[in-house]
């Protein structure tokens, strides 16, 4: 199976599993029909969405498998290479190949960005808007700056992170009468 078909199959399986989970959970929804059931209750629409989703996932899975078979038949083995097992040599994958493969799918910068975002939201209320924003802006800006240019940008990023966080806080709380958490500075 080629990469594109594998992806389609993965999408189909994901949605099928999600739909099953959704249908199972929809059975736990309580229903109220004090005047008799004259139509639909609170379970009906989720059940309908779940079953429709299962049907569409099944269609996606089946059509992907059929498409793959058709493609295999279409090539008629033309691309198949005949190898002599005695001539084939086994080569070990280069060091760090596995890690490289993972990083290609989920780059390190993406993972770190998610982590920074997670900590930013986690401490938003606890340490307050100004401090959490300063830390977030500092870390995320440094991460996104090219390695070689970080020294050049350092002072600007530090001043920018502090200045913008304080400025935003005062503009939004003083002039836009918006509530932002003060945290430990309050």
């Amino acid at each position: 199976m080629n990469k594109a078909n594998k992806k389609e199959l993965g999408v189909g399986i994901f949605f099928a599993l999600l739909s099953i989970f959704y249908i199972v959970q929809s059975r736990n929804v309580s229903t109220f029909t004090p005047f008799g059931n004259r139509g639909l209750d609170s379970q009906s629409i989720p059940a309908m969405i779940g079953w429709l989703s299962i049907a569409l996932s099944a269609i996606l899975i089946v059509t992907t498998i059929l498409k793959d078979r058709k493609e295999k038949k279409g090539t008629g083995g033309q691309n198949e290479q005949i190898c002599d097992p005695d001539q084939v040599a086994c080569i070990d994958p280069p060091k760090g190949a596995k890690l490289q493969g993972i990083l290609q799918v989920v780059p390190l910068k993406l993972m770190l960005s998610l982590l920074f975002l997670f900590f930013y939201f986690l401490f938003y209320q606890r340490i307050g808007f100004i401090l959490s924003s300063i830390f977030y802006l500092l870390s995320q800006s440094f991460l996104l700056t090219e390695k070689g240019k970080r020294k050049k940008w350092a002072l600007f990023i530090i001043l920018f992170s502090i200045g913008v966080s304080v400025l935003i806080y005062f503009i939004f709380t003083r002039y836009f009468t918006l509530f932002l958490p003060r945290g430990i500075l309050g």
Partner: peptide
Amino acid sequence: GLLSALFGMMFATVGLSPIDSAKRF
């Protein structure tokens, strides 16, 4: 595309249901 729409509808059903305010998901 239709699966995507249903996926969106699934998230919209989280919370209180309309009419009878039953807790869902």
